[in-house]
Amino acid sequence: MWNLDSDRPIYVQLVERLQIQIVSGQYAPGQKLPSVRELAAAAAVNPNTMQKAFAELEGSGLVVTQSTSGRMVTEDSDLIRNTRKRMAIQKAEQFFSGMKELGFAKEEAMALLEERL
């Protein structure tokens, strides 16, 4: 069962989770994805919600549907790389805005990061 937050729409969280699995290479480019039903059972969510998440991923092009073999991860490695980068930027921005809340200037935050490594 996937741990999902209780206050945000479930399909949004499913999209995020699947994006991470794709950009991190858990699902390789061109790899066939499990069926909606299997993934829904694994995540313990409604199949319709999983379907909705897939529709979103198809919209962004990360997942492509082939009538013969079901759904697979796109083979467009540029798209995957770009998505990965976009998600990384988002995470970084989250980090810096969080640090800003705590009163850290950018340089201080950077120094802290270096120190923690």
Partner: peptide, 29 residues
Amino acid sequence: MRTIINNYNPQASVLISTHLIGDIEQVLD
């Protein structure tokens, strides 16, 4: 919960009455 999900069929619906909402919330449409 898994049984209900695995049994899912686009022609059929499931109506579940409960007061333990937190436990089944994820599978509800």
